[in-house]
């Protein structure tokens, strides 16, 4: 359905700027994940340090966006879809900022791992990273297009990431049981996997908020069925 424009063009623009800010923040976090994973796969600690340094931009943008939203709440007293959008924006903003922090965690673990010989070829981790990056992208596309179906896709994918995380955990467990000298590296890899799994949780959080924004119903703390989740 075509959206009517707001009577106040200033207000319309301010709302649009919040949306654009979120998309930009989303792009920064995707890049942070890509580079953090790149620093692991390419054993490039300089790149990892860049990710850590650039998190400051994400933090600054997070605070700016939050301030804008609070200003809109105070000055415009938004209602209905505008109110749902702004409250959603505040929460999505928080999710994205946390994703930035997780990318930093991954970069830090990568630096530690790069100091030692590689334990094993990385196969599932890049897959996980790819899925989680896609989830962030899709959840923000869903935001722009008011697309609940797409948001639901993201919510489903969170299961896949959880399953991959479990699988990595089991695999690393066997490494550690066979050779205790691998424990340090295995734990670091596990933490990277855990961080990716947490990123997927946050991406699902973004998707949950999109569904709230569009429908007015909260689906937070509701999880789509995953048959092999406890396998």
């Amino acid at each position: 359905m075509e959206e009517k424009r707001h009577t106040s063009s200033h207000y319309e623009r301010e709302l649009q700027e919040v949306k654009e800010g979120l998309l930009y923040l989303g792009a920064l976090t995707e890049k942070a994940i890509e580079q953090a994973m790149g620093s692991l796969l390419e054993r490039d600690s300089a790149l990892a340090r860049r990710v850590i340094a650039e998190d400051e931009r994400i933090d600054t943008l997070d605070m700016e966006l939050e301030e804008r939203c609070i200003k809109l709440l105070a000055l415009r007293q938004p209602a209905a879809r505008d109110l749902r959008f702004i409250t959603t924006a505040i929460k999505i903003n928080g999710h994205l900022e946390r994703i930035g922090d997780m990318a930093v965690n991954i970069a830090q673990k990568a630096i530690a791992l790069n100091d030692e010989p590689q334990l094993k070829p990385y196969i599932d981790l890049p897959r996980m990273a790819e899925i989680t990056r896609g989830m962030i992208q899709k959840s923000l596309d869903a935001l722009v297009r008011d697309d609940c179906a797409l948001a639901n896709e993201v919510r489903q994918e969170e299961n896949t990431v959880d399953c991959l995380n479990d699988q990595i955990f089991r695999e690393l467990l066997t490494f550690m049981m066979e050779d205790p000298r691998t424990i340090h590296r295995a734990l670091l890899i596990m933490q990277i996997s855990k961080n990716l799994e947490r990123i997927a949780d946050h991406a699902k959080g973004v998707a949950d908020m999109v569904i709230y924004m569009v429908t007015g119903h909260s689906v937070r703390h509701q999880y789509p069925e995953c048959p092999d989740r406890n396998a």
């Binding site: 959206e3 009517k4 424009r5 209602a79 209905a80």
Partner: peptide, 11 residues
């Protein structure tokens, strides 16, 4: 939709 448009100032 008409209610939403009105209370959000899109009228």
């Amino acid at each position: 939709k008409q209610t939403e448009d009105y209370i959000t100032g899109r009228f």
